[in-house]
Nucleic acid binder design. Structure first.
Lengths: 194, 194
DNA sequence: GACAAAAACGAACGGTCGTACTATTCATGT
DNA sequence: ACATGAATAGTACGACCGTTCGTTTTTGTC
């Protein structure tokens, strides 16, 4: 990895953290450059436009997510254990993001702004839903979950619990946000079991 | 209502629609003025700062929400019918917002930005959760719902279904987004019934 | 250590940002 | 109809926006 890719990575790393607070549109080339102690034009040269930067920020974050959530979860035994690992690693990811999850932030920022960034995010989130569904299906295969379980519905329900957790923790600061999410998760599992 | 309040209302009405797309921070005095065919300074004079505009936009939208969702729902008979009315009017509100629900958009935009706007939004959403919980409690009172129902958990679960619907409809454009939300809602009701 | 390529820089562009002033037009009560 | 205050417009401000261009510094290779 040459010097170029090295600083590009550093920029994306910093920018993806910053975007959690100010949003993808709120990112500014000048501010990023200042905070990273480089020149505006030097930073800009790594991307050819701001929108390209935004897309690459999303891709960078997605790579992280795969590495830190999906891949470790797949090491858990198939079935309920893997579903639990997936959810647990997901909310651990949430809590590790000091300024919120960039995907959750981007979901509402981009949902009405057509463009490359929106397309990239939508594709990522559809993939993520598919992963949840596939992992859920291993629970059906092991017999832990009902044979007639609607795995798609399960995946959507699981996602909605995570979304709500993000809201209750970050904006509302409810003291019982985490146990509430746990309760919802256990209820979901109870309904899925054989 | 004098001329001043009249145009102020018009500005807030337009701005609250615009904010669904560009966000509260993305609102710009100059652009708003241009689109409303008035001068930047003339528009600005109605608010003393951009952040005051943002707070008033949220308050304006909240008044609308009370008028179009909460008040009509309270006219439904106590109990499950009222819960159904609340949820139905809520998602009808969603679908009426051509560019997304401003509250959903603001939730993730403001969750890491301390300030008046964030405080106002958090307060609104806590109140809204309380309304859902209170309405749910009427279902316990009528005996339609279990006496030991956790109304708080019910309110959070209901909210999470709505959040997920917003995501699946607006960003992911899933064709079965609405029936999926309906299914989740019916499952929630089934678990609550006596 | 020379040399080409890659990377970072500095300055400048036209524009827009929020905000502050002053001036002008309008609406309203009498 | 007129006076008065409210409402709107005009102008300017310093700062920052994304982007371009030409130059300088750094890097990697023989």
């Amino acid at each position: 990895m040459g010097k170029g890719d090295q600083t590009r990575e550093a920029v994306l790393e910093f920018a993806s953290a910053r975007a959690c607070t100010v949003g993808l549109e709120g990112l500014s080339i000048g501010t990023l450059a200042k905070e990273l102690h480089m020149s505006k034009s030097g930073l800009f040269a790594h991307f050819q436009s701001k929108s390209a930067l935004q897309v690459q920020v999303l891709e960078h974050a997605s790579d992280r997510f795969v590495e830190e959530v999906i891949r470790p979860a797949l090491r858990a035994p198939r079935g309920e254990a893997r579903v639990r690992a997936l959810f647990g690693l997901w909310i651990a990811w949430f809590h590790r993001q000091e300024h919120g999850c960039i995907f959750v932030a981007a979901i509402t920022e981009l949902d009405d702004r057509p463009g490359d960034a929106r397309d990239a995010l939508a594709s990522q989130q559809r993939d993520w839903l598919d992963v949840i569904e596939t992992v859920t299906a291993t629970g059906v295969a092991t017999g832990e979950f009902r044979a007639d379980l609607d795995t798609r519905q399960f995946a959507l329900d699981l996602y909605s619990i995570a979304l709500m957790l993000h809201l209750t923790v970050r904006l509302l600061a409810l003291p019982d946000a985490i146990p509430r999410a746990d309760t919802a998760f256990e209820n979901l599992l109870n309904g899925a079991r054989a």
